[in-house]
Amino acid sequence: MKPAQFDYHAPTSVDEALALLQRYAGDAKILAGGQSLVPLLNFRLSRPAALVDLNRIPALAYIKEEGGQVRLGAMTRQRTIEFSPVVKERLPLLGEATRWVGHLPIRTRGTIGGSIAHADPSAEYPAVLTALAGEVVARGPKGERVIAAKDLFQTYLTTSLGADEILVEVRIPAMPAGAGYALEEFARRHGDFAIVGIAAMIVRQGPRCTVARLATAGAGPVPLRLRAAEEILERDGLGEAAIEAAARRAAELVSPDGDIHASADYRRHLTGVLTKRAITRALGVARG
């Protein structure tokens, strides 16, 4: 199949792009890496009147550290993130998650902004954004607003971004030095979307756990922060029994749906198993 007709615009600034979105009043689609949108166009599941291509706006691609956060321009390629020294140093969980996003040729084009705006429930970046309590900056006709991860993802493929807004920046608090981290995932083939994935960060002081962060991919319509499981680790430490209890709690916290890939029960089971693995592996790399 081939895409239906559309008007094509490649603005060179965000302001120009915003004006175009206004002009089409909801009938235009933003084109970022195209790795999710173009397949939908090819199948004619999406037939927008116009595409507003962000690929000619160089100002949207950067990685910098500011205010204790790592800030990534929406058009930063997944491949750039994979090889970024700043990400490796300050946000290694994001770096690890990137290697699970599709394959290298997909990451050549795919962007962090596109992945988050697309809000696939099985995607890795939304899980990391949720685990690390990041936020995104949206720009619209009325200016800029900052949206916390917990207010961004609404349901399958749906965010709180308006049709006239552009996600321009992703902000994630830099991880504390020595924090342990892991992204554990189960998929049928490497590079497929996760059936379930768990993003984890652990800060330890000896046997004590001062900060635990856990979030899911694929275990429900949106990524879920597993706060009650985190609390078990922060209260009871990092012994085997506490990890077991946290994993059991994680499985209770999710309410996944079944689909052709996996039943709801299986996803729940995986949530427990992968939570345990993620905490254990995170502990292995944690210092402190």
Partner: peptide, 25 residues
Amino acid sequence: EHGICGACTILLNGQAARSCIMLAV
């Protein structure tokens, strides 16, 4: 034609990319 099989992979500015989910323009 939807990015899965890789048959259409080319090098774009030196990096492998799918040519079926990118527009010629």
